[in-house]
């Protein structure tokens, strides 16, 4: 199943390697390095799955997630974090994400998450 995937992460070495590895498996991958570009790229052509970093310069992952969900509620977003994303106020800031994975992420895990996200398009983690 070839998927259209949009990756957004400011760690270029990571995201470019990841794109290459996903490409090797037949997926169509676009890469951006910040939150604003992620939203712009999304509107150019809607991907089937988005993978976004939580801590990005400019627009943070949290804001990107909120804007993606507002514009395209059914588009599944996988969030990558450097550390757990639970804030002190008892809010779950990744609410709405299909899944939240902690870096370093095992490639197999991410691949499974992407496949699952694509299959469940339209379903959102409550």
């Amino acid at each position: 199943m070839a998927l259209h995937i949009l990756l957004a992460d400011d760690e270029r070495e990571f995201v470019e390697t990841l794109a290459e590895r996903l490409g090797l498996r037949g997926h169509h991958v676009r890469v951006v390095y910040d939150g604003l570009s992620a939203l712009a790229e999304m509107e150019k052509e809607l991907p089937q799955v988005m993978v976004i970093d939580w801590m990005m310069p400019g627009l943070s992952g949290e804001e990107v997630l909120r804007k993606v969900k507002a514009a395209h509620a059914g588009l599944p977003v996988i969030v990558l974090t450097g550390h757990q994303a639970v804030d002190d106020n008892g809010q779950d800031p990744v609410a709405g994400a299909f899944m939240c994975l902690t870096k370093p992420v095992a490639f197999a895990t991410l691949l499974d998450a992407i496949t699952a996200a694509a299959l469940s398009s339209g379903e959102v983690r409550s």
């Binding site: 070495e13 990571f14 390697t17 290459e20 590895r21 450097g82 550390h83 370093p104 490639f107």
Partner: peptide, 18 residues
């Protein structure tokens, strides 16, 4: 520590995977 260590670690994991 988690942020500063996990990001490079993530790059190492993906590079090794590559």
């Amino acid at each position: 520590v988690a942020h500063e260590v996990n990001n490079p670690l993530n790059i190492i994991v993906q590079a090794a995977g590559m």
